[in-house]
Amino acid sequence: MSANIEQKVKNIIADQLGVGEDEIKITSSFIEDLGADSLDIVELVMAMEEEFEVEIPDEEAENIKTVQDAVNYITTHKK
């Protein structure tokens, strides 16, 4: 299931940030490696909330800095 989540997260990131999926590693940092800014991250969080039907509060979103962080959060909180 986690692999499936990881793939979906990568799809969302590729779509939102306009980067190739092959550039996205599990360790990639949104800001440092993928060129996201603070509003891109808000949009990423929104897209993940909608795709996985989870709520990611602002204070939690601040700790989601890498692809791994996102996959971990969703795996833990997905209903």
Partner: peptide, 11 residues
């Protein structure tokens, strides 16, 4: 809180 406003606004 710009991040919250952004999310609420779009939706």
């Amino acid at each position: 809180n710009g991040r919250e406003v952004f999310k609420v606004a779009v939706r």
